[in-house]
Design a protein around this nucleic acid. Structure first.
Lengths: 142, 142
DNA sequence: TTCTGTGCTAGACTTTGTCTAAACGCAATT
DNA sequence: AATTGCGTTTAGACAAAGTCTAGCACAGAA
């Protein structure tokens, strides 16, 4: 029984299983990155992941962080979130939900899907599928 | 009666009026940029505006295009659209509507607001206002 | 005319993210 | 044990979008 394991985080074994389930070969670096991501549901950009993974000692390169986040997003392990025009965020919470973006501070919160009520969506054009629907509620100080 | 005026576009006078209505001093450059934007409802990024404004002869600098688009967005003349992680788009159609984004091609279409049916929105936190709600339907080739 | 403020500009700079070419690691084969 | 092959990782060069700076132009006020 490890004492130091993070409250909501997955242990290494669970992370490896998760990667395998999504058809991703679990390498050292990928597991390190995934461990950071799934420590808790969060919104992070590549820079933050890079810093967190290499907090103790330098283990993973910039290129690998970018490649891996892209791979994870493609394989449906995390979700890209577009709210800040200067950088791409990744959301480690894959349960369907929306976002509230504080444009002053850059803070990003989750909004439960029940709070928005999306009605009938238009159909995707011939030969296309809906990849996802992003709802972002932008708020700012009065 | 000018013969060469664009079909749906505003003439110079109308553009000047529009700028004034939004509290923007109508300078040469701002009118040039606005004329391009309101030639028709469209989604453009700064680079495209720069190219279009300077199509015939170089009239407006890069810095001015960026500053002006930022100003227009702040004053509610155009709307920022975040769909492409590498650049910011501006939508010259201010009638409320949503977007469908073709992630393969980068194409961006309008979706009439009636086609989505957004129900009750969550309230903005204390001391904050909802600036806007962006709904983006991402589609891709099967 | 001088002063002041707003706007414009070229070009340097910053930041995020991508690309490239080489090296690594590991497993299967000889 | 040595060889081959393939996927992965890496440092560092690079690209692209956007911002910043410092100076110039111009208009209106004093």
């Amino acid at each position: 029984m490890k004492q130091e394991q993070r409250n909501t985080g997955l242990d290494r074994e669970a992370v490896v299983r998760k990667l395998r389930e999504h058809g991703i070969t679990p390498t050292q670096q990928r597991v390190d990155i995934a461990t950071v991501l799934f420590e808790r549901p969060q919104h992070v950009c590549a820079d933050q992941v890079l810093a967190q993974v290499n907090a103790v000692e330098s283990l993973v390169s910039k290129a690998t962080v970018y490649n891996t986040l892209g791979l994870f997003a493609k394989k449906g392990l995390v979700r890209e979130v577009l709210v800040d025009p200067t950088r791409l965020f990744y959301d480690s919470n894959m349960i369907p939900h929306h976002h509230m973006y504080h444009s002053d501070s850059g803070m990003l919160e989750d909004v439960a899907p029940g709070q928005v009520q999306l009605g009938a969506l238009p159909e995707a054009p011939e030969g296309m599928v809906i990849e996802g629907v992003d709802v972002v509620i932008r708020v700012r100080r009065i």
